[in-house]
Design a protein around this nucleic acid. Structure first.
Lengths: 129, 129
DNA sequence: GTACTACTTAAAGTTCACTTTAAGTCAAGC
DNA sequence: GCTTGACTTAAAGTGAACTTTAAGTAGTAC
């Protein structure tokens, strides 16, 4: 199947101009018809899915580009690509860890404010009697 | 205990100018000595710890400021502050969820590349015989 | 007495990831 | 024939969160 820019945009919750921006930044390179219209294959869509995955886990445009550059360079870059994913996995694990630790602080604040809130309600109830 | 700007900066891995920037943005307001030198109490340090917690879980400076504004306004804002934390908790949970889903994709890539990598090594070994 | 640390204002600069604008061409569908 | 959706380049703008620069003052530590 081949998809138009607006179809893939919709599928990945992106704007067409954002996809053209990614192309300009060299991280994707869809085929074009003889009329110059972008035509996205399933492989292009998969690539965009990976772009979104890397982006939403905090990888910069520059590093995403670096990864896809390596992909284009062929099998010699396999171990470097593996390294990228291993270090990116660590980055995600660190981020999750940090979020969970901070979540704990937020939970305690919620408990604190919940208690404070119900006390305030009780006081108001007492006053109104 | 009272701390200097560089002491709290070090403690929270911030730069002194960043702390002054936070003050300028109205999210902290440490006391100053008669000489105009900032002096941070333990309560100020706790507040900065909360700033860091909120910041690293993705809250904007503007929203952090909003929260501390409410704190200053007193007990009438308790339920609004509770709401902020409840919705922020959800934000964190959503983020962790998204990270875990994407982590799964990364893990599969690592498996894929690990296999590919060892195959490439085997081929090279075969060639060298 | 000089290096260090702190302070001040005000403004300009930086990075990232887009987003928007301008000013146009081109082809398909109704 | 006109709306819609696609395209082009090039450049300017946006927002967030700082960061840096300039250009100065002032107290503390060795």
């Amino acid at each position: 199947m081949a998809y138009s820019i607006s179809q893939v945009a919709q599928r990945f919750h992106l704007e067409p101009h954002t996809i053209r921006y990614y192309e300009k930044e060299g991280i994707i390179s869809p085929n074009k018809t003889d009329k110059g219209i972008r035509s996205f294959t399933d492989a292009d869509a998969e690539q965009l899915a990976m772009v979104c995955c890397l982006k939403s886990t905090g990888m910069s445009i520059k590093d995403i580009r670096r990864y896809f550059d390596l992909c284009e360079q062929g099998d010699d870059t396999v171990s470097e690509r593996l390294d990228i994913f291993i270090s990116h996995r660590q980055h995600i694990l660190d981020e999750v860890d940090s979020l969970m630790k901070n979540l704990d602080k937020i939970e305690r604040k919620i408990q604190w404010y919940t208690r404070l809130h119900s006390e305030t309600l009780n006081e108001k109830a007492a006053q109104s009697v």
